[in-house]
């Protein structure tokens, strides 16, 4: 395989004829290798899959990545090796597909109950211990609950619940909320800002809050 500079990659891929074909073949090899190594050694959740299966998956991801790269060549900024930039597409393809396979059932009917249950279990002030501390915990939890109820809209509460408390991916939660991960990020950012501001407003720091619950666990 020929070693290429960033400029040589771009020239060849944006060009035509044999040099373009050679560059595409070389790039595809790199991408298959990248995806395969990622699947085989870079993830702990695929250990049960055979090498053949992983290799077939890697070929699919590489093929999709190759198409995406060709569509996005004009967006390469030249601030990294071309291959590093290209590998990102392969990792993205793989991670996106693997996340999709992990999506869990979701129904709107369950959500209200689930929301209450998750927060309730997290927000249980606990039994026993110093009554003063317990009262402080209760006070904080009431405030937190109030903030979640009053400052956030339903979609923000749902996003928060899914991503931070249920461990769903941004991608999965975005699909549930029928939006994009990018928009979801902004929605959550807005929610975090509101909660943080309200807590700071009531003179709570992260240390105060974690200290309050330290003895409980």
């Amino acid at each position: 395989m020929v070693k290429r500079s960033n400029e040589a990659w771009l020239d060849a891929l944006q060009g035509a004829g044999q040099s373009q074909q050679e560059a595409l073949l070389d790039l595809r090899d790199y991408l298959v290798r990248t995806a395969f190594v990622y699947l085989r050694d870079g993830r702990s959740d695929l250990l049960l899959l055979s090498t053949d299966t992983l290799y077939e998956m890697a070929e699919d991801y590489a093929q999709n990545a190759l198409l995406a790269i060709q569509d996005n060549l004009d967006k390469f900024r030249g601030d990294a090796q071309f291959t590093t930039w290209a590998y990102r597409f392969a990792i993205n393809e793989a991670a996106t597909d693997l996340r999709r396979r992990q999506h869990r059932d979701f129904s709107w009917e369950d959500v209200a109950g689930q929301e209450t249950a998750v927060f309730a279990s997290l927000l249980d002030p606990g039994t026993g211990g110093d009554p003063d501390v317990k009262a402080e915990r209760e006070e904080f939890l009431q405030l937190l609950w109030q903030i979640l109820e009053n400052d956030l809209n339903e979609r923000q509460r749902l996003a928060l619940l899914g991503v931070y408390f249920q461990g769903r991916s941004m991608q999965e939660m975005a699909e549930i909320l029928e939006t994009t991960p990018n928009t979801l990020y902004k929605m959550l950012h807005d929610a975090r800002k509101k909660i943080k501001a309200s807590l700071l407003n009531q003179h709570y720091s992260a240390g105060d809050i974690l200290g309050l619950f330290d003895a409980m666990w």
């Binding site: 990248t34 190594v37 990622y38 050694d41 870079g42 993830r43 590093t84 590998y87 990102r88 392969a90 990792i91 993205n92 793989a94 991670a95 996340r99 991503v163 461990g167 991916s169 941004m170 991608q171 991960p181 990020y185 959550l188 950012h189 975090r192």
Partner: peptide, 18 residues
Amino acid sequence: QCPDCEEIYQGLLFVVKA
């Protein structure tokens, strides 16, 4: 703040090192 970008970051770091 972003589990998905964290995953891509870890993956890319892994393959670039490889």
